[in-house]
């Protein structure tokens, strides 16, 4: 019987879920594409003899002729478009993943505590979340920009500040039901303290949901960075990000479409990949067919 031959080393639910994820072709392809884009963005610029901020006055507004060194041509300051897009990708991807991570960690801890403690504390904590939900996003970003004097820190904190709310609500609901489970009561009978229970029992058991939601959070952060940079509140010239590159691209849309298509296409590709990955993760972690 195969049951008796089970390996002495057990397989955790997480391993099973990971195995299921690997069987999802579209998601695995997305992982490969995304990884390629990340590597390209972070290593690609070193292959060129100039940086994205160096102007080449011999080639101003050069077309995409695929001739070395300006493969996709230059913009109207003579800066290489491809290198600028790759460097912009560094900024956008970093903010995306880091922002999702920080927002996720804050949200998960906040939600887990609220859900586990319950009662009045929970009520107070969740009302606070609802108040923050009601705060207009753009106004908040402008206020934070004033506070931090603009720049990346303001942008980053504004994004995190608004995006930790949803994971907090999701995790709180999960923690609430976990807190009633018998293994949590057993942990209390075993003398565990509240913080230890939250960190060792509640949070790990919320992870499936968090990973799925987190994979959707990354594109959300990238989009809001692009959106804010597009509005001119985010990343400022001459530093590139996909958002402000797209903004310049739209301005020159009538005469030269490639300024819009290259950063826009890359952003769309990344968002698509992340959504497919999120989809695959959701299928793999879905508690209904565990």
């Amino acid at each position: 019987m195969s049951v008796d031959l089970a390996p002495p080393r057990g397989t955790s639910t997480f391993h099973l879920q990971l195995r299921r994820f690997r069987q999802n072709g579209l998601s695995m392809a997305s992982v490969v594409v995304l990884a390629a884009i990340v590597v390209l963005c972070f290593l690609g610029p070193y292959a060129f003899p100039f940086s994205g901020e160096d102007a080449d006055f011999d080639f101003i507004s050069a077309p995409a002729a695929f001739i070395w060194p300006h493969l996709f041509g230059t913009d109207d300051f003579g800066r290489d478009l491809l290198v600028r897009v790759l460097e912009g990708g560094q900024v956008s991807l970093t903010i995306g993943f880091l922002g999702a991570l920080v927002a996720g960690v804050i949200g998960v801890l906040y939600g887990a505590v609220a859900g586990y403690v319950g009662g009045r504390t929970d009520g107070f904590m969740m009302r606070l979340v609802e108040i923050l939900y009601g705060f207009p996003y753009v106004i908040l970003v402008i206020l934070l920009s004033l506070l931090f004097g603009g720049g990346n820190v303001a942008l980053f904190s504004a994004i995190v500040f608004t995006l930790w709310l949803t994971p907090a609500v999701i995790v709180r609901a999960q923690a609430q039901s976990l807190a009633q489970r018998e293994f949590v009561q057993a942990a209390r009978a075993g003398g565990m303290t509240g913080p230890a229970i939250v960190l060792q029992h509640i949070v790990p058991n919320c992870m499936s949901t968090v990973i799925v939601y987190g994979s959707l959070l990354v594109p959300e952060v990238i989009l809001s960075e692009s959106f804010l940079s597009f509005l001119g509140i985010g990343i400022k010239e001459p530093q590139a990000s996909w958002g402000n590159l797209i903004q310049t691209g739209t301005a020159a849309m009538d005469s030269d479409l490639r300024l819009l298509l290259l950063p826009g296409g890359l952003l769309a590709l990344v968002l698509l990949c992340l959504n497919f990955i999120a989809d695959g993760l959701r299928d793999a972690f879905d508690p209904n067919d565990r």
């Binding site: 997480f14 018998e182 293994f183 009561q185 057993a186 009978a189 075993g190 790990p204 058991n205």
Partner: peptide
């Protein structure tokens, strides 16, 4: 609490799946 312990009705729910 080591001196006083409890066991539960639903044996699987009483164990942390992770």
């Amino acid at each position: 609490r080591s001196e006083m312990q409890i066991i539960f009705q639903d044996p699987v729910a009483a164990l942390d799946p992770r």
